[in-house]
């Protein structure tokens, strides 16, 4: 216990000033002199804490990759549309159509429907959006956990900006999404994604769009979790929105062949725009909208919802 006597003077001095009168000489060690009062202090510390939990636990990273990989393998490879339409997969009785013609027709059919002659590549780009959405959906869970464990209260009793608390969760979700999407892209290339049209600029553009998508969706799911103390509610919301969001986009199928009402939903679903950017930049496929419009739509989506998220956090984090 005697070790306290060895504490440096400044600690004692700091406490000494606490009991002095307000007219006392300002101490160089006083609190206000050393506390960084920029509104964003602590943002990186909070983000880093989230990320550390993630990269220090590789099992979770691997598990989160399994599902999109399964989709790629099962859906992308099993739904072998190319084989269905080419190489004598079908013939019309009584007509002797040359194989080349059938192959030609098949390729044209594929290009017409999917914008690329290979469904696996089409789906792989969709999966990039899929993993982003999936990560974003669970970003709300961490705030529910923090509330339950009391960590949120601990953080809120410090001068960290309330906006930083929410922003750190959004940022960590964005970073995680990007890393996971990059792994999925590499795996997809290994599985046979056509690399002919891939350029560094295209990859950069694609990941920018994915980051914007993640920003917007992470904000939405965090907002839903701001006051929640029950992770089961969060799970239910995730399960409810998961499939409609994915199937109500062009991630799995081209929107052109969907019924009108579904097309209307696909057109407002930001997932469609991120996927559209990926297909245009990575596969050289014809797009649903111009690149400029796609980016503008995603940027507006990200900006609007992260702004709403921060405003709500000012209001609703404190009960």
């Amino acid at each position: 216990m005697s070790d306290v006597s060895g504490l440096p003077e400044d600690m004692k001095k700091a406490y000494g000033t606490a009991s002095s009168t307000p007219s006392a000489e300002p101490s160089p060690h006083s609190r206000s002199a050393i506390i960084d009062s920029s509104p964003w202090h602590g943002l990186w510390a909070l983000t880093n804490r989230e990320l550390k939990k993630w990269y220090k636990n590789p099992v979770i990273l691997l598990l989160s990759l399994i599902q999109p990989v399964l989709w790629l393998g099962l859906f992308g490879k099993a739904m072998n549309f190319n084989a269905i339409f080419t190489d004598g997969a079908f013939s019309i009785p009584g007509l002797d159509i040359p194989k080349e013609v059938i192959n030609q027709l098949g390729n044209m059919l594929m290009l017409n429907v999917f914008g690329t002659s290979d469904y696996f590549s089409f789906l792989a780009v969709g999966m990039l959006s899929f993993i982003v959405i999936f990560t974003a959906m669970f970003s709300g869970m961490s705030i529910v956990w923090d509330r339950r464990l009391g960590t949120l209260n601990k953080v809120m009793s410090t001068p960290v900006a309330r906006g930083s608390i929410v922003m750190s969760k959004i940022l960590s979700s964005v970073i995680r999404s990007i890393v996971q999407a990059a792994i999925i892209l590499v795996l997809a290339v290994l599985f046979g994604l056509s690399t002919t049209g891939i350029t560094p600029l295209g990859v950069l553009g694609t990941f920018t769009s994915l980051a914007l998508l993640s920003f917007g969706f992470s904000s939405i799911f965090l907002m839903l979790a701001l006051r929640s103390t029950n992770q089961n509610t969060q799970m239910a919301i995730v399960n409810l929105l998961n499939l409609p969001l994915l199937f109500g986009s062009n991630a799995l199928f081209p929107a052109g062949f969907m019924p009108e009402w579904l097309q209307a939903f696909v057109k407002v679903n930001p997932i469609s725009y991120a996927t559209d950017i990926g297909r245009q930049l990575l596969l050289g496929a014809g797009g649903m909208a111009s690149l400029a419009f796609d980016f503008a739509y995603l940027a507006a989506f990200a900006a609007a919802f992260s702004a709403i998220g921060i405003v709500l956090s000012w209001r609703f984090l404190t009960k």
Binding site: I34, L46, K52, K56, G150, T158, P159
Partner: peptide
């Protein structure tokens, strides 16, 4: 409230960062 996955030192430094202490 300390983070179980982090060390004691990391936890203290995390708190320090929340106060913006250099």
């Amino acid at each position: 409230t300390a983070d179980e996955d982090l060390t004691g030192y990391e936890n203290i430094m995390f708190c320090a960062d929340l106060y913006g202490i250099p």
